[in-house]
């Protein structure tokens, strides 16, 4: 059980490393510095704001998935005792609230990172939160086989959409000469 919780937490924390490697998150520069000019992003923001926006969105997404997974895991337990329609209505209500709250986070994240990487964040958050909720509620630890397949899938997803940030050369040079 502890191994499951640790593995899930590590999997989720890997996202920070993933974005630091791509220089989407920058903890080395001063938070007050302006970000480098990037293609497709005319408005420039301070590095501190970029970091806090991306982190806030990632936390919002995993919090949402905690509720989604909890609704399904707890809901499936009550299929024998409660009527199907009643459970479905409760799950729809939970999911509706969560998704309504997740939409601004998705949009804000899309200002900084492309769709492929948002899908990676969702994928990792979904499986990490599911493992934690399942371990806590059902007391069910992940098997080695599932841990291995989860790790390989996450690694593959991260590699597939790995895209380091590239500054616009011309604008950068012009700024340096000024």
């Amino acid at each position: 059980m502890i191994l499951t919780l640790l593995f899930s937490a590590m999997l989720y924390l890997l996202l920070w490393g993933y974005f630091i490697l791509q220089k989407k998150l920058d903890f080395n520069s001063s938070p007050g510095d302006m970000e480098v000019p990037l293609s497709g992003r005319p408005a420039r923001r301070t590095i501190g704001r970029v970091n806090s926006d991306i982190q806030k969105c990632m936390l919002n997404i995993i919090a949402g998935y905690f509720f989604i997974n909890a609704a399904f895991i707890i809901g499936i337990d009550f299929t024998a005792t409660l009527t199907y329609g009643f459970i479905v209505i409760i799950i729809i209500a939970v999911l509706a609230v969560v998704v309504f709250g997740m939409t601004p986070a998705n949009r804000l994240l899309h200002a900084y990172i492309p769709l492929g990487q948002i899908a990676v964040v969702h994928f990792v958050s979904m499986i990490a939160s599911f493992s934690i909720v399942n371990a806590i509620y059902n007391d069910e630890a992940l098997t080695t086989h599932i841990i291995q397949s989860m790790a390989i899938m996450c690694l593959g997803a991260m590699v597939a959409f790995y895209q380091p940030t590239r500054a616009i050369g011309k604008v950068k040079n012009r700024e340096n000469s000024l």
């Binding site: 086989h145 397949s149 593959g156 997803a157």
Partner: peptide, 17 residues
């Protein structure tokens, strides 16, 4: 290159599951 490597890993993980 990255896409092919990543998707192969992902597909292998999926099949492994």
């Amino acid at each position: 290159f990255r896409l092919i490597i990543g998707l192969s890993l992902f597909a292998y993980g999926y099949y492994f599951l």
